[in-house]
Amino acid sequence: MLRYLASRLCIAVLMVLLATLVIFLIANMVPGDPVLTQLGDIAANNPDMVAAFRHRWGLDLPLWDRYWIFLTGLFHGDLGISIGSQRPVLEDIAQYAPATVELSTIAFLLALIVGLPLGVVAAMKRDTWIDHLARSISLVGVSAPTFWLAFVMLAVFYGALEWAPGPGQISASTFPPPTITGIMLIDAPLAGDWDTFWDAAAHLVLPSIVLAASTLGLITRTTRAAMLEALSQDYIRVARAKGLVRRSIMLGHALPNALLPVVTLGGLAYAQLLTGTVLTESIFSWPGLGRYTFQSAVRLDFPAIMGITLVVAAIYVLVNLLVDLSYAALDPRVSRR
C-alpha cells in the first residue's frame, strides 16, 4: 500500500510540473502583451520605459530561460513576484486561498449533505412526489446558469426580502478576526468572537448555495441513478429472499454499491468547486482565488497565472488520488493485495 502511494505521488508531482509547462507555453503564445496592459498606451510608446519594464520582469530573456527561472524558483518555494500586485505570488495565494477553500468546502458539504440523501430517497420512493421533487431540484441545479442564479438570489433574498446580507465576506462594520488559518469560520471562534462568526456564516449562505447548485444537482442525479442500478441487481433480490428488512436492504446492500460512482463524481466536483469560483466570487465580491485569477488573467500577470495553475493542478491531482484511495477502501475488487 505504501509503495503504491509513493509511486502515485511521484506520478502526481510529474503531472503537476507538466501542467505548468503547458500553461507556460500557452500563456506565452497568446497574442497579448503584459507591457501594454501594465504600462498603459502612453508609456508603451516610450521604448526606454518598455525596455526597462521588460528587463525588470525578465521578459527579455529567452522562453526556456524564463521557464528555468520559474522551475528553480519553484524548488526554492518561490513563485516570483506578481506583476499586478508587486507582491510575491505565494503571499497573494496564501492570502486569497483560504476564502475560496472556505466557500467551496461549505458549498461542497451542502451539495453532499442535501444531494446524497435526496438521491437515495428519490430512488427508494421512485415515481412518487418526492422523486419528482428531487428530479426537479437536480434539473434546475444543473441547468440554471451561475450568474443568473447569483443575481436572482441576491435580488430576492438580499434586495427584496433582506433575509441575507449582501456581497462580501463579512459586513463592513465587523472587524475581521486575527488571521490564523485565514478561514473566518475557524479564526473567529478561535478568537472567541462569535458575533463575527455568525456574521461570516450569514455572508456564506447565498454564495455557497449558488456555488453548490450545479454540484448538488449532479450528486442527486448520480446517486439516484446509482441506487436504482444497484436495486436492480441480483443480490438485492437475494437480500429480499433472505427476509431482510427494507432498511437494511436499502442502506446495507444497495447504498454501499451506489456510493462508488458518487465518490468519483464527488471528488471531481470538489476540485471543480475549488477552482471554479471565478463567477461566484466576482458577483459576491468574495476575496478569494477566483477573483485573483480573473484579475491576473486580464492583466496577463504571468507569475500569478503560473502560481494559480500550479495550485489548480495540485488540487486536481490530489483529489484524484484521494478518490482512488477511497475507491480502494469502498470496493474490495479494486483493492491491492
Partner: peptide
C-alpha cells in the same frame, strides 16, 4: 422458505 438463484456470480453483494 429459502431461495437459491441461478447466477452465483451476481447473487452475492460484491462490496460485503
Amino acid at each position: 422458505i429459502a431461495m437459491v438463484f441461478q447466477d452465483p456470480m451476481t447473487s452475492l453483494n460484491p462490496v460485503l
